[in-house]
Design a protein around this nucleic acid. Structure first.
Length: 758
DNA sequence: ATACATACC
DNA sequence: TACTGGTATGTAT
């Protein structure tokens, strides 16, 4: 189907800018006129230029796809067709029409709340948001083409009388809580999608409902008996002039009893149950909701949009009804198929799901397996029939847009602020994550993300900032001598360690330290057992394993009267844990200073270093050598490849000698990268053991310590005896426990880092 | 693992 | 004047 903006051929690349009118309340308006205004208002802006760029990228993707398509032979297509049919058959077998899934969606939620609470707004076009961005508009405003995700200043051009109300999220959350209470009555395991939207499985409710007496299906109007009925209707926001009132107080005369209270009895069917739920929502909040009823989530979602606002739509649970429904369904209506997918499909002549089915063989050759399987499901009208329990979050982030920010100090302090905010949010959910991602958007709207995964999870603002700051500084250096001209910065944390993982780390260390505790097996055997155990931290297993070898503990296995200190590796002749703990405490307080030389958590001094170090690059001061240590060469190299302006700095960096490795035969620790004042390998080994254990010590102490990241290890030059230790460090983060154990044992001293990586 | 893109509200 | 913020997931390397 044609795509709003692509009406003129010279502007075939403006589809991203054009009005998206496939949502409710946007039918039959003057698209061309609206798009003209949008274009005129946007043209020439940095945003617009970036949109053009992105559009070109999509067009290139499509071109590439078309080229691929042209090379497909009849043979391939035939084979694909067979494959597609096999999959279709299999999917068909899995079809389940026994569930009743409901998708509920509040109508113009934020806008409706504001209208409810401010009668002035009721008959005006209004939107919630700011001059920069709108999050919702009421139906009045939609007639002008004003919609969610449109900047307010453009909306004002489309509709000069538009009233823009700033959002009150606390209020929306409160209303959301109210409607969720009602949802829970129909499905206690309902899945919220956002504040105003949820999926419910009505199946169980309907079964019970069949035997419910009428009294359980009778719901009163919220009006007190002294209030006049019409006032209720006035409170409801007018979504459309011709919006049908769902208030039974007005519609059913038999609902008004002598007592003065109005009520309504609902039947036992699905439609009635959902109508009842919507009725209760409206009574409770004075806001209306729409709902879709279907045999699966994908269809329910489409259905809830069908009779919006304040309506519902049932798709009968028969294969025939589903297939008919899907045939006519435009692909863009399907959740998950957005602007870009739509455009790519359109290029193949696919606009409705019937086309989707017809072209499935082709799609299976042009798209990834996950993609075409999804398309296939959609074309068959299939979707989730059970509502997955709310899954654990996978990431948490915070980002901010601002006026151009180009000063390094300001960028760093903003970064710190973001880290603090993020840490605060993480604390609320008691989260710890291993991957920190920095997001940057420059004034040309170009977005960059830079991530680093640590060997252990972090949670505090300082810990996160220690990483984010380095990522940011790398970008700053990359761009220098030009400054980064930012319009947005964000920090995200992911790769959370589960609650299961947090505690077992400590538990299992204790377990390891108590040889007799878990059966008759000694520490070595127990280690192998732990390797099979998902809950045991791979990282600490390796560390312990490695640490255990040089101290030749095997002889101690039978002697269960002593415990091994994780810090000094000595046998402590006691079985009393209190005594033992005191010993560990002592060791910890003795050793925690030395490795902390490599710590980089002092942000204040970093900030100062920054301003000095940035303007005059490659000075020879101690300070800068210290700083350089924080930029893993591997990372720098890969980052340079991405940067447009190739600065001369990188070459200097790569060829620069490692200052600390040139001092005769003195050994450099691959972990902390400090030279060790010894040639005695036993002493040196002991030091590296300690460094490797930093991670465990970190957990034990619960303190901020230097993030030993994997990349920093690759930085140091692999020479002689260090190799073995380095390979262990690397295996820790790249392999699973069992693999790395074997590898690290099998590695000889002649392996190089590069060889190991390949 | 990282970067970037797409999608949803 | 002015084009979001939070989360998940797909695609590509």
């Amino acid at each position: 189907m044609e795509n709003g903006a692509s009406s003129t051929k010279e502007e075939g690349f403006l589809s991203r800018m054009a009005l998206n009118d496939n949502k409710a309340g946007m039918e039959g308006l003057d698209r061309d006129k609206i798009n003209k205004i949008i274009m005129e208002t946007s043209k020439g802006s940095r945003f617009y230029e970036n949109e053009l760029k992105k559009e070109q990228q999509v067009n290139q993707r499509i071109e590439k796809m078309m080229l691929q398509k042209a090379q497909i032979t009849e043979q391939q297509l035939k084979k694909a067709q067979a494959q597609v049919e096999r999959v279709a058959l299999e999917l068909e077998r899995s079809r389940d029409l026994t569930r009743v899934i409901v998708h509920v969606d509040m109508d113009a939620f934020y806008a409706a709340v504001e209208m409810r609470d401010c009668p002035e707004l009721k008959d005006k076009p209004m939107a919630v948001g700011s001059m920069s961005m709108l999050s919702t508009s009421n139906y009045h405003a939609r007639k002008f083409g004003v919609r969610a995700a449109m900047p307010g200043f453009i909306a004002k051009k489309l509709c000069p009388n538009l009233v823009i109300v700033p959002p009150n999220f606390d209020k929306y959350r409160a209303v959301s809580d109210e409607i969720r209470e009602i949802f829970a009555d129909y499905d206690p395991h309902f899945q919220p999608v956002s504040l105003d939207e949820a999926y419910l499985d009505f199946t169980d409710h309907l079964e019970k409902r069949q035997s419910w007496p009428e009294s359980c299906r009778t719901h009163r109007c919220r009006t007190s008996s002294t209030e006049a009925v019409p006032e209720v209707a006035n409170l409801s926001p007018v979504l459309f002039e011709d919006s049908p009132s769902s208030s039974p107080c007005l519609l059913s005369p038999e609902g008004v009893r002598a007592s003065g209270g109005a009520f309504e009895v609902f039947g036992t069917s699905v439609e009635e149950a959902v109508r009842e739920m919507r009725f209760r929502i409206e009574q409770k909040t004075t806001l209306t909701a729409s709902a879709g009823i279907a045999p699966n989530m994908m269809l329910a979602k489409v259905c809830s949009d069908k009779n919006k606002p304040n309506g519902q739509y049932v798709l009968p649970s028969t294969r025939e009804a589903v297939m008919d429904f899907v045939q006519a369904l435009p692909v863009r209506k399907v959740s998950g198929i957005g602007k870009v997918s739509e455009k790519m499909l359109n290029a193949l002549g696919i606009s409705s799901c019937s086309h989707l089915a017809q072209q499935m063989a082709l799609l299976s050759l042009l798209f990834s397996e996950t993609s075409w399987h999804h398309f296939m499901q959609v074309s068959l009208g299939l979707g989730s029939t059970y509502i997955p329990r709310h899954e654990e979050r996978k990431s948490m982030s915070t980002e901010r847009t601002f006026k151009e920010l180009s000063k390094v100090e300001e960028q760093l302090s903003l970064c710190r602020e973001l880290c603090e905010d993020l840490a605060e949010d993480m604390k609320k959910e008691d989260l710890k994550g291993k991957t920190v991602t920095l997001k940057l958007k420059n004034v040309n709207f170009e977005v960059k993300t830079r991530a680093l995964t640590l060997q252990y999870a972090v949670a505090t603002a300082d810990e996160i900032f220690a990483v984010a700051k380095d990522l940011l500084k790398m970008e700053i250096e990359n761009e220098s001598p030009q400054p980064l001209r930012l319009r947005l910065m964000g920090v995200r944390i992911s790769a959370f360690v589960g609650l299961d993982d947090k505690k077992p780390l400590q538990k299992s260390i204790i377990g390891f330290l108590q040889p007799g505790k878990t059966g008759s097996s000694g520490p070595t055997q127990e280690l192998h057992q732990k390797l099979e155990n998902e809950h045991f931290s791979t990282r600490s297993v390796l560390t312990w394993h490695f640490a255990g070898v040089p101290t030749a503990q095997k002889k101690q296995e039978e002697v269960s009267e002593s415990l091994t200190c994780p810090v000094c590796f000595r046998q402590v002749e006691t079985t009393d844990l209190n005594v033992f703990n005191r010993h560990i405490d002592q060791c910890l307080s003795n050793t925690c200073r030395k490795p902390d030389h490599s710590t980089d958590s002092d942000s204040e001094s970093d900030l100062e270093l920054e301003s000095k170090g940035l303007d005059k690059h490659r000075g020879e001061s101690e300070v800068e050598k210290q700083e350089a240590k924080n930029y893993p060469q591997e990372a720098q190299r890969s980052l340079k490849n991405h940067s447009q302006t190739d600065s001369s700095i990188s070459a200097d960096n790569e060829t620069a000698p490692q200052p600390r490795n040139n001092k005769g035969s003195i050994l450099t620790c691959p972990v902390c990268q400090l030279t060790q004042d010894t040639n005695d390998l036993t002493v040196f080994n002991h030091h590296v053991d300690l460094c490797l254990n930093q991670e465990v010590l970190h957990e034990l102490r619960g303190q901020t310590s230097s993030p030993i990241n994997t990349l920093s290890v690759t930085k140091s030059k692999a020479t002689g005896e260090c190799v073995y230790y380095m390979s262990v460090c690397l295996t820790v983060s790249h392999l699973t426990g069992a693999q790395s154990l074997i590898l690290s044992k099998g590695l000889g001293p002649h392996n190089t880092i590069d060889k190991f990586f390949r």
